[in-house]
Structures are given as C-alpha cells and as structure tokens.
C-alpha cells in the first residue's frame, strides 16, 4: 500500500515505522504499526509505502481500500537500524513481510555505503508468500531463498539456511539485520548466541499509540527490564532482547 504523506517523511530511516488508521472510522479501532518499506518523492509529493499480509481484522479492512481513500499516517516513529559506514558485508535475514524494513535498508545502504556487499536470506511459508522478492533481488548481490514447504529455494527455515553460511560473516566488517516472526528471531538469537557477531532485529508488538505513552508494546530485555518497542525500538541489538 502506498500512502501520500507529508514531506517530513523524507527524513525516514530504515527500521522506522508508521501508525496507520482509517480516517473517521472506528474499525479497526487502534492504529496499526507497519515498518516503512520505501519513501519516494514524486512531483513535490512524498509517498510512504508499507508491505502487509492480511492476518486480522485491520489488515483485512486495509486490503479492501480503494485508490484515493483517506488514511491517517503518523510517523516516522521509533529507532531505525544502525549501519557503520565502514561495513563491508550487510546480511539481511527476512521472514515473510519482514522483508519490508530490510528492503528499505538495502536501498539506503546501496546508495550510501560504497563497496559493501548486500546479501539477503529470504524465507517464507511458500513461494507465493515471498512478497517483495523482485525488489530486493534488484538491490542485493545475492538473494538466497528458502520456503517452509519447499516450493521454492531451500526447503526449510531461513534461519537454518543462514546457519550453514554463518561462518562467512564472522568478521568485524559484517553486520546482520533481521525482521520476521518472533519464532524466527528466537532461532536466530540461538544461532548467534555466544558469537561476537553484530546483529540488529526489528521487533513487532501490538501498539496503541506508537509514541511511547500507552506502555502497551513492551518487550523483555536482558538488562533494562521491560522496554517500549515503539520508542526504544523497534530495532534492538539481538543480544539485548530476552527471548526466553
């Protein structure tokens, strides 16, 4: 879905998100958080793109919208990914529509970090669920695909596929970025545990406000207790999150 938004969205950083709500409707009631998939300027207007899968009432209603319908968009919100300018290998691990912020990140890194290789491991339930594949293939030097049902690429979980190659990214100049279902991030956390690899993950949680007030979206961290996904995140260092 592409949303016409204010010019302030040009400052959006990969990993940041927006809160989206139907204008003048209480169904769905709460705004829904989505990672930013892309931000483009065209003819003086700014457009924010989000990628979503229909999973519940809110996304079902969104899927029935027609061109020109009005939405309220709040953002850009939260903390984005950090990429050191000296980074040589940027490894993206995407699960399903979790590819959205990683695709935005890849686009930025391709422009701003010269000489970095961008590699993507992309997993989904089936080949049909590999949303956003074409775009990320156009940016990354390598895209390695896996599907749970084996309908495309490596059969099995994306984290297993990545696990086989993990040693390739053990050097200081590599950075790993991931977004996907919590179960996938938990597996990744297990794989990377006790390894000196820098990895950031973007977390998803139910939110009401998106600006740090409702305290609804907290996640358990190892050293800071419960913290807000909307404000202290949604991007966290994987080792700071308590996945137990």
């Amino acid at each position: 879905m592409v949303l016409k938004a204010s010019a302030s969205f040009r400052e959006s950083l990969p990993g940041q998100f927006v809160m989206v709500r139907m204008t003048d409707s209480n169904a769905p009631f709460l705004s829904r958080p989505f990672s930013i998939y892309s931000v483009r300027s065209r003819g003086g207007d700014t457009f924010v793109e989000i990628l979503y899968k229909v999973v519940g009432k809110g996304t079902d209603i969104f899927s029935r919208l027609r061109e020109g319908d009005a939405m309220n968009v709040l953002g850009p919100l939260g903390r984005g990914f950090d990429v050191p300018s000296t980074c040589k290998k940027i490894v993206l691990i995407a699960g399903g529509v979790g590819v959205a912020p990683l695709s935005f990140l890849a686009e930025r890194c391709e422009k701003e970090i010269s000489g970095a290789e961008i590699i993507c491991y992309m997993g989904a339930g089936s080949s049909k669920a590999l949303a956003g594949l074409d775009r990320i293939e156009g940016i990354c030097s390598v895209v390695k695909i896996s599907t749970d049902d084996g309908s495309r690429g490596h059969p099995g979980l994306v984290t297993e596929f990545f696990g086989h190659d993990m040693e390739l990214y053990a050097d200081n100049d590599s950075r790993i970025y991931s977004c996907g279902p919590t179960q996938m991030l938990r597996s990744l956390h297990k794989l990377l545990k006790d390894r000196p690899v820098a990895c950031q993950v973007s977390l998803e949680e139910r939110m009401a406000c998106g600006i740090g007030a409702c305290l609804g979206c907290v996640v358990k961290t190892k050293s800071d207790g419960l913290v807000r996904v909307c404000k202290e995140g949604p991007v966290f260092d994987i080792n700071s999150v308590d996945f137990s």
């Binding site: 769905p28 709460l30 949680e205 139910r206 409702c214 305290l215 207790g225 419960l226």
Partner: peptide, 23 residues
Amino acid sequence: RDGNQPPRIIETASGMLNAVGLQ
C-alpha cells in the same frame, strides 16, 4: 513499578483492553 508482562493490550469492538499494571 515495572507493570505487567506483555501482552498488555488488545483491541475490542470500538475500544481496547489494557493491563499495563500501573508501570
């Protein structure tokens, strides 16, 4: 106070339930 463990909120018909726990 740390408040309650998540999940703390859920949408309902024209409203929401919260159990933040007075964090």
